[in-house]
Write a protein that binds this DNA or RNA. Structure first.
Lengths: 213, 213
DNA sequence: TAGATTGTTAATCGATTAACAATC
DNA sequence: TAGATTGTTAATCGATTAACAATC
């Protein structure tokens, strides 16, 4: 019955962005925000914003706007970022460090409980409060800690076999930074492939377009 | 006249993905690929692929498929990744290191010619073959080297003022990793804001959805 | 009351899918 | 020739925009 059950995928894709702005407003103590103001921030239109927000309940008040903290709360709920899933990270290189130190520490949705690498020089050292373990501990660790999610920061060539191993150890979701599209053959697996350089190519495209205008 | 002039934005967004697959096929020595095969890789449909590829010229041959290297070439051309823009990076923390070492070194579209930080302990040390310079050198460096693009890997709070300075020194495009949406007030500026954790939230959403089905 | 702003409907626009003749 | 696969048109679907009555 709840409207909230069929939110279109384009709205879902915009939710993290709404969430960021609402969090910022909330932290500044702003209690209400209008569709027009949100639109300005989102580089969208007031109409679009109202259409979006309307599909998960009525949080607005005519003449006043939307209640920031209620809206923030319902978005957290829809995205599921109130949950806490145990996650591990494999590959303690540059990106691995960045993720462990700068992304995960915000402590939303995932708790980083283990870091693995195969380099003997790295094993034993500390990253963001965790000791780097040997990859050969992967299987037993995943089984005993019921790890749901693996963050893959290993080189291209290593991804497939590691993902296989992890799948067999019960891991069913992957956040993959390896520059290689992981395409698991099982359909009970969730994969988010991240390609940072895609956005660099978009930047390049826009630069070229500007220059040729 | 050229079809190529009005490629829709949704096609543009898919180009980096096509590009990746074509590059892989090319490196494996595959000369032709069908829309069906590309669709399988893109998790799309053959119809979609043909529609997409058709909007920038006729590279297919009935009964045979598309010429991989020609297609790759035309995509490189459209995205403008054959150009080489001088870029600098500010903030030699974890993400800065990751970008400098793992993303930029592929040597496409941008050449990293300078790295800056304000931490005296970092200044002078080497990252990916470049010596970290003091941020107070930023302005003079940008002016003398005609820097077009800045990669911002600094904390939230530092972004606005640094972007201002850079703008005044002639920088007109920004690849921003600071977890803060940079919204320059000038309209001759290109900004790509990267929010890595958005994809983490999408992962979270999909996990929650799976669990509740 | 007057001004602001929502929720919702209808109209428009654009993107995806289906179908098939053309051709390698 | 038969099989494969394109290019392109038309049909469908979905997303965005515009408009306005309802209401704080």
């Amino acid at each position: 019955m709840a409207k909230r059950d069929n939110i279109s995928s384009s709205v879902i894709r915009r939710l993290p962005r709404y969430y960021r702005f609402l969090r910022e407003l909330d932290s500044r103590g702003v209690t209400h925000v209008s569709s027009g103001e949100l639109a300005r921030r989102m580089r969208s239109t007031a109409s679009q914003v109202r259409q979006d927000l309307n599909c998960f309940g009525e949080f607005g008040q005519q003449g006043i706007g939307y209640n920031v903290s209620m809206l923030r709360d319902v978005i957290e709920d829809i995205l599921g970022i109130k949950c806490m899933y145990p996650a591990i990270l494999i590959g303690a290189g540059n990106i691995g460090h960045a993720i462990a130190n700068q992304v995960m520490f915000e402590g939303r949705c995932f708790e980083l409980i283990g870091i693995f690498d195969k380099d003997p020089d790295k094993i034993g050292s500390d990253v963001g409060g965790l000791v780097i373990q040997n990859v050969d501990q992967l299987e037993s660790f995943c089984r005993s800690h019921y790890v749901t999610t693996a963050i893959l920061c290993v080189p291209k060539a290593a991804v497939e076999p590691i993902a296989e191993t992890l799948y067999e150890s019960g891991v069913r979701s992957f956040w993959n930074f390896s520059h290689y599209d992981l395409n698991m053959k099982f359909d009970n697996v969730i994969v988010e492939n991240v390609h940072i350089s895609d956005s660099l190519m978009q930047l390049c495209f826009r630069l070229k377009k500007t220059n040729s205008d």
